[in-house]
Design a protein around this nucleic acid. Structure first.
Lengths: 200, 200
DNA sequence: CTAAAAACATACTATAAAGTATGTTTTATA
DNA sequence: TATAAAACATACTTTATAGTATGTTTTTAG
């Protein structure tokens, strides 16, 4: 195999297994040893490709987590159709797509934010990038809705975007505490109420 | 000094110092050694009063964290006056009360939820108790508002309560990623919009 | 005042952690 | 095909961790 390809493959393998373990057990309690055991490689390989666990964490956030949020919550926002309906279907569709495992372990991004964001500025920057991308997509959609007269022109796009993101991330954490999805139903009910008032 | 009093004092000391360190550095990365160093006591004292770090964690949640949320976000809801105004002033007042340190480190409860809630059912139960107490207070206030005709009778109290809590906890995490309070202003703007629509 | 129990202190064990030093194998290149 | 460099493996160091075993001091109760 070509060297560059092999190298990329190994890095991707480490990245994917890391994400899984971080999601399952948290960042701090996942050791480099544990990660490399799941890859069937050794520590030597790890420190050949990454200079530290911190660097790995940042790459997991920038590559895996960012893509996950993008695919699930951002890309759908750029579809056509009624803006408010698109908002509701994106949020509710995402919730419905979650497995039990996903619900029990919450949002990977939110987990990172609350576990390690206040420890290293580099983590903050990587995580902020995801939020900003999400926020921009929401603002863009809200603006389109205003131009199509399906959204009240008086509301602040940014404020609504922040409130939508906050509530979604918040409920992903709170759901961890419960053993059923009723809390998500209530969240969706509250969201629908919120979206309703955005009408002109 | 009386033995029981002394014992209580020591437990409280350990509890308070633990909370501070958990809040500052996270639960997992705060060792029993570090805690006992700040109390000027030793490991022997710790394991005399607590059977494990897990037991300590649960007591910190049940005692310190619960009281903190109660004082800041729950007790104010039982005041008199217009329900919607009380909601807005409670949420905005709490945000304004936060020090820079508080903003940078987020919500202690939310940090626990996202760092360790999915690891032990005992943590879930202790944390859920706080959410439930908060939810009840919100529902109670919303119901009062309905009876006083200051809140629309058609809305679901539970749904609104969950959405309010979710958004607040969410933004406490997101604020960690930013270096200014603009994000909180946007959140407050989004919240005001939400509360407005609850009018009859 | 004395025995016992509670409140601590000291010293230790066992394990796990991040990272390093130094090897060996594989691939590319001249 | 020889050589260098990249890709890994092995063995190690240092430090930290939760928890234990066993001491000493203080307080209580008889």
């Amino acid at each position: 195999m070509e060297q560059k390809q092999k190298s990329e493959l190994t890095k991707t393998l480490i990245l994917n297994e890391s994400f899984k373990l971080f999601y399952k057990n948290g960042f701090k309690t996942t050791s480099v040893d544990k990660i490399m055991k799941t890859t069937n490689l050794t520590k030597g390989a790890f420190y050949h490709h990454y200079k530290s666990k911190k660097e790995l964490g940042i790459e997991v956030i920038s590559a895996i987590v960012q893509k996950r949020v993008y695919d699930g919550m951002i890309r759908p926002l750029y579809q056509g159709g009624d803006a408010l309906h698109l908002l509701e279907s994106t949020f509710s569709g995402r919730l419905k797509s979650f497995s039990l495992y996903d619900k029990q372990h919450g949002c990977p991004m939110n987990n990172f934010i609350n576990e390690i964001a206040d420890e290293e500025e580099a983590y903050q920057i990587a995580l902020k990038r995801i939020i900003e991308e999400w926020k921009s997509a929401l603002i863009h959609l809200l603006e389109r809705g205003k131009q199509e007269n399906s959204i009240n022109k008086d509301i602040s796009n940014t404020a609504v975007a922040i409130y939508l993101i906050s509530a979604f991330e918040g409920v992903r954490g709170i759901r961890k505490l419960y053993n059923d999805d009723l809390i998500l139903d209530h969240y969706m009910c509250g969201l629908t109420l919120y979206l309703n008032q955005l009408k002109p």
